[in-house]
């Protein structure tokens, strides 16, 4: 890290807007997930151009960029959520712990258990709070009886910081909670399956600042056990929660680096335009 700072402090001239090659540090030591030369197409239209990026262990990596830049598309490639879109195709190599998740012999069901996802709009199942959390462990067969289920529900809700608020009304529908609570319920639901990586697609965009702050604190705590990739529109949020930041622009990964560096000393002209608010 020290070395990087020295490099930045020299304040070299910014890379010009026309150059779309990724600048910064896309690679980390001992990564959890590695993405190499990922291209995504929606039919004929290319949505992601040749993205190479690592996701490290116990880190929060934020993906920022203007609307339509492909950050959500990229995030959804990481647990193959794009499979559900018929005309979407992914080319390249995305590996989880060294295994390419797009290999023919990889089953998406266990993959999605390893790489969980939290969505933009809180989307609890229209079932009870308890069932929402217990659903994942149940279908994967992690739990055999009621006691084990109770235990996993309690620990998941505790990790998601929701236990104290809902412990007396676990049988009420998950949809009866407030927006922020619903989103934490969705996080608890994801944690209950025991993933290695959690993907978050603008998890706070539908929430008020107080609920957002709670989720951000939670993300920080979760970093101890999980790798987290978060897409966000809020640069403040990215700077608050993440250790590394990746800036996307029109399908290109423009710059990756430590959050401090990207926000304070961006290397690329486009990144500087965006983080200083001149653009986007």
């Amino acid at each position: 890290m020290e070395k990087k700072r020295d490099f930045i402090s020299k304040k070299e001239p910014l890379v010009s807007r026309e150059n779309r090659k990724t600048v910064g540090y896309p690679n980390v030591e001992n990564p959890r997930m590695t993405c190499r030369n990922v291209n995504v197409y929606y039919g004929d239209k290319q949505a992601i151009n040749d993205v190479t990026l690592d996701i490290g262990r116990n880190e929060v990596i934020a993906m920022i960029g203007p609307s339509g830049c492909g950050k959500s598309t990229f995030l959804r490639c990481l647990n193959r959520m794009n499979d559900t879109i018929d005309f979407c195709s992914v080319v390249g190599n995305i590996s989880l712990d060294g295994k390419n998740i797009y290999d023919k012999d990889v089953d998406v069901v266990p993959l999605r258990a390893q790489v969980g996802m939290v969505f933009q709009k809180p989307n609890p199942f229209p079932k009870s709070i308890y069932e929402n959390v217990a659903y994942g462990p149940k279908i994967h067969g992690f739990v055999q009886n009621r006691t084990e289920t109770d235990e996993i529900v309690e620990t998941s809700l505790k990790k998601a910081g929701l236990w104290e608020e809902v412990k007396d009304r676990l049988n009420q529908p998950g949809t009866s909670l407030s927006g922020g609570q619903q989103q934490r319920l969705c996080i608890a639901r994801t944690i209950a399956v025991g993933p290695e990586v959690i993907l978050m697609d603008e998890p706070c965009s539908a929430l008020d600042p107080i609920a957002t702050a709670r989720i951000e604190d939670l993300i920080d705590e979760l970093r101890e056990n999980f790798s987290i990739a978060i897409v966000t529109h809020s640069m403040q949020q990215a700077s608050r929660v993440s250790q590394r930041t990746a800036y996307f622009h029109l399908g290109d990964l423009i710059e990756v680096g430590s959050t401090d560096q990207v926000f304070l000393n961006p290397l690329h002209q486009l990144t500087e335009d965006y983080v200083t608010g001149r653009f986007g």
């Binding site: 559900t84 969980g116 969505f119 199942f125 229209p126 659903y135 279908i139 994967h140 994801t190």
Partner: peptide
């Protein structure tokens, strides 16, 4: 049935059929 429910089910690792029969069909 809103796509968010389908995504939620797939996101926790439900198979296509579990998604349909546990979540989409009841709704």
């Amino acid at each position: 049935v809103p796509p968010s429910i389908r995504e939620a089910a797939l996101g926790v690792g439900a198979s296509q059929m579990q998604m349909v029969f546990h979540h989409v069909l009841p709704l």
